[in-house]
Design a protein around this nucleic acid. Structure first.
Lengths: 221, 221
DNA sequence: TTTACATGATTGTATGACAATCATAATGTC
DNA sequence: GACATTATGATTGTCATACAATCATGTAAA
């Protein structure tokens, strides 16, 4: 059990809340983030706010142009595509690694998460889908034995999160997702590294295709 | 030609200089970085310094513990190994991609960089080795068509840079490096994607082995 | 030796200030 | 009226200062 209790500084909390706001789509890509407004609404000083913003900038979630200030990072489809490609490689590797060292307990949790996902999909419960897929991948990434893969993927997924939110609304995608994840798990249970990798790659490819369908670049004026 | 001229804010310059100082090994892993001292030596305000530090923290080059302040990030061998593994995967992919789309001009530059490396190795010119290998990889990564790969690799390499500095001093490693890079280039010239990937992976594996040899974890007290 | 307390150093946060820069409205000129 | 120029205001970048909270360390007491 993890009993660590770490101080939650204002700056960290600010960064977390801003991150959530961006990932949830509350702040949209391209939107300017005015310091004074943010400070007022979140009731923190400019000092803390600016430190938090620097952190998010390094995470590539926002872009800070000197003398113009921060705005939510925009992304071209080319970049998004590149992210999906790398994601496929890394998630595939994670699945392959995990298939060789998964414990029965871990497989049990994934099975359970998968069931929860199916249930949430049935009930059209967006929140439930997110938490269940989150658990599914968390087990796999934490368990794959390479902490860097999970770290990088977390960063990459964050940067295309807004696309996921849009493509998730695509009706019917749930069914496919469910099938794709089941295939991953099946391969893991058979300790089939290549199969697990292929299934994970396929899953990302499908997500990429779904994202491309809903991607809208800057509209021509 | 790139004529862009962007404002160089104090904060950015501070972050850059600190980054260089860490990568060059001037600040060593584990070393505490006291704000007031840094501010005094670099002649910037705490405001700018702290913003710069937040950026470096997000890059994982330093660790900031609340109420204790920043220190140069330490790394376990487990993490370093994980980084090398991911690096092998990503550099392999980059080499494979690049082999399919390299222009003759790009290959020419790489050939030239390789020659410069051999020359620098001969002359025992540490600086020359760094710049020539840098050019070699820059062409490949910029040219591979996936900007995310190059972005991630840059971050990963930075985190194990201090290991590279140590293992480079390993006599004889140069010769191997040279051979390994030549193999990569050969495969690229033959447009052999699998060969290029294999050669790149092999190169990273060798670097990893060299790093392991010089890795010293925290000495038992 | 261990515990408790006191002391100083360092960090986290807030505030106020001001110059530099940007965005835009107002002005003048052709 | 269209365009160039000039004010105007808003926003950012940077600094100095202040102070409470926390940490690190030494000293005194049990």
């Amino acid at each position: 059990m993890d009993l660590k209790v770490e101080p939650r500084t204002v700056q960290v909390q600010t960064a977390n809340k801003l991150r959530d706001a961006i990932l949830s789509g509350y702040f949209k890509p391209g939107q300017r983030l005015v310091e004074s407004e943010l400070c007022e609404r979140m009731e923190v000083s400019r000092t803390s706010m600016r430190e938090a913003l620097r952190g998010l900038e390094a995470e590539k979630l926002i872009t800070i142009i000197p003398n113009r200030g921060p705005s939510v990072a925009e992304i071209t489809w080319e970049e998004a595509k590149a992210i999906y490609d790398v994601r496929a490689i890394l998630e595939g590797e994670a699945a392959a690694l995990f298939s060789q060292c998964a414990t029965t307990e871990q497989r049990r949790v994934m099975t359970q998460a998968l069931a929860a996902f199916a249930e949430a999909a049935e009930a059209n419960d967006a929140m439930g889908r997110l938490t269940s897929t989150g658990r599914f991948y968390e087990v796999m990434l934490q368990g794959c034995g390479n902490s860097i893969i999970s770290e990088l993927l977390q960063g990459l997924v964050a940067r295309i999160n807004f696309l996921r939110a849009r493509s998730m609304s695509n009706p019917g995608r749930d069914k496919y997702s469910s099938t794709e994840m089941r295939r991953i798990l099946k391969a893991i249970e058979k300790k089939d590294a290549d199969g697990a990798r292929a299934a994970a790659v396929e899953h990302v490819r499908a997500a990429c295709a779904a994202a491309e369908a809903v991607f809208e670049p800057r509209r021509a004026a």
